[in-house]
Nucleic acid binder design. Structure first.
Lengths: 239, 239
DNA sequence: GCAGGGTATATTGTATACAATTATACGAGA
DNA sequence: TCTCGTATAATTGTATACAATATACCCTGC
C-alpha cells in the first residue's frame, strides 16, 4: 500500500514466486482464467515448472489484490467482478483521479509533462489510423503518467490498483471507436489545465473524465453482458 | 480489494498462516516491532511455534498491506510511515469518507443507524468520565459502521485499509483530550445529516472531519516527532 | 429406490530438507 | 593499516514429504 520501491516490489520478477504472481495476474486479467474458475496449486505449478511453494505464495498475493478468493482447505477461485463493482470503482476513481490531477498540477516534472504531451499527440495519430491496440496502450500510459506525477506513492499505488482491476472489464465490453477520440480529447484538456497550472480545472476535468468513461460503458451494455462470460476478446476503452 | 466474504477472509483466523498474519499485524500496529526492524522467518516461527511456511505466507500478505517490505534474498523489514504518508492518507480519506457518508445516507439500515446513535451517546459518556481507551475504540467503530453502511464492499475495504494503516500514528502522537470531544461532535453532525437524508451535507461534514483530524495531528507535532521512534506508547485520537 | 454413512481420493495446510544468495569474519598482500 | 578476496555462517528461496481437511463415490440398510 505504501513505500513502494520499484526495485524491490512484490512483483519481483526474478523470483519464481514473482514470476508466478505476474503470470497468473496476467492470465486472469486477460481472461485466460475465467470467473469462478478454480486454480489448483499442482496444476499451475506443473504448467510453470515450479513446485507448490511459490505458487501458494503467489496465491496469497493475488488474493490481496482481489483477483482470486481463497477458501481455506478448499481452493482458490478467480473472483467475479460485478457491474456494481465497476460502478463503485469509477465513483472512487472519479474522486481520486481528480485529486491526482490536482496534485500533479503542482508537482509534475518537465519530463513528465513532455511525455504527456507526446502521449496525446501519438494517440491522435493512432486514432486516425485506427490502431486500437496502441490507443488502449497510450490511454493506460496517460493515466500512469498522471499517477506518477502526483508525487504521492500512496495515491499512485491506490489508483494503479483500481486501474488494473478495471482492465478486466475489457474482457467484457466491446470496443467503441467513438470513445477513443472523446477520451483523448479529455486527456488533452486535462493536460492543458495542468500545463496552465489551473488546479481546480484539472481536478474537475479528471473527475468528469471518469464519469464519462463509466457512462460510455453503461451505454455499451455493461450491465447486460456482465457476469455472462461472453468469451468476447475484443478490447474496449476502459480508461 | 473486492468481493470480500467475512467468513473466508484472508484473515482466516483458523489457519496458522492467518493467525501469524493477524499476530504480526497487531504487533506492528501496536509498535512491538519498530520501524525498519528486520523480521526473521525462523525467529517469528519459533516464537509462535510454527514452521517457516505459514510465516512466509503471512509475510507476503503483510507486504501487500504495506506493513512490511520484503527485499528478495535479504529480509523483511517493518515499513516506516512518514509525515507525508499520513498527509496523503488524510487527503485521500477526506474524499472517500465523504463519498462513503453520501452513499451511507441512502443505504444505511435501521440497525446501523441505531448503532451509530448509540455509539455517539456512549462516546459522550466516556468522554465525561475520561475513559480514553473506550473513546478511541468507539471512534474506530463509528467509522467502521459508516464503512459498512455505504453498501460498497470495495469502498469499505479501501477505507478500512487506510484507517488501519493510520492507526500506526497512535504510536507516534500524543493523546489530546480536546480532540476527543470535537471528534465526537463531528460524528454527531455527520450522523444527523445522514438521519435527515441530507447527502450533500453528510459528504461535506465527513470531508471536513478528516481535515480537522489531520490538522489536529499537525498541531500536536506530527511532523516533529515523526520517524524518531520516541517510544511513546500513549494513544492519540487517530479518527 | 433412496437416505445415510464410511472409505477412498484429491487438494490444501504445514513441516522439513536442500539450494541459492547474501552478509560477515578473517587473513593475505600491498 | 588498509584493502581485497575467500571461506564461513546466516538467511531466504524452493522443493518435497507428510498431515489434515474436504469431496465423491460406493456400499449398506431400510
Amino acid at each position: 500500500m505504501t513505500n513502494y520501491d520499484k526495485k524491490y516490489d512484490a512483483n519481483d520478477k526474478y523470483s519464481l514466486r514473482g514470476r508466478v504472481f505476474q503470470k497468473l495476474r496476467e492470465d486472469i486479467l486477460s481472461g485466460k482464467y475465467k470467473e469462478h474458475e478454480e486454480l489448483k496449486e499442482v496444476a499451475i505449478g506443473e504448467e510453470l515448472g515450479v513446485s507448490r511453494t511459490p505458487v501458494r505464495e503467489a496465491f496469497r498475493q493475488l488474493e490481496l489484490e482481489g483477483l482470486i478468493r481463497i477458501v481455506p482447505n478448499k481452493g482458490a477461485y478467480v473472483t467475479g467482478i460485478t457491474a456494481k463493482d465497476v460502478k463503485d470503482i469509477y465513483m472512487i476513481r472519479s474522486l481520486l483521479e481528480g485529486l491526482c490531477a490536482r496534485l500533479a498540477t503542482e508537482k509534475i516534472s518537465k519530463e513528465q509533462m513532455e511525455e504527456m504531451e507526446e502521449n496525446i499527440y501519438l494517440a491522435d495519430f493512432h486514432e486516425e489510423k485506427g490502431h486500437f491496440d496502441q490507443i488502449a496502450e497510450l490511454d493506460n500510459r496517460f493515466h500512469d503518467i498522471l499517477y506518477e506525477a502526483c508525487d504521492s506513492k500512496l495515491l499512485e499505488h491506490t489508483l494503479k490498483d483500481f486501474h488494473r482491476y478495471v482492465l478486466r472489464v475489457r474482457q467484457k465490453t466491446l470496443a467503441t471507436n467513438t470513445r477513443g477520440r472523446a477520451s483523448n480529447d479529455e486527456h488533452r484538456q486535462i493536460m492543458e489545465a495542468i500545463k496552465a497550472g489551473d488546479t481546480a480545472l484539472a481536478e474537475k476535468l479528471a473527475n468528469q473524465h471518469m464519469i464519462n468513461a463509466y457512462d460510455n460503458m453503461v451505454k455499451n451494455g455493461l450491465k447486460e453482458i456482465y457476469g455472462e462470460n461472453t468469451g468476447e476478446t475484443e478490447t474496449a476503452k476502459a480508461d
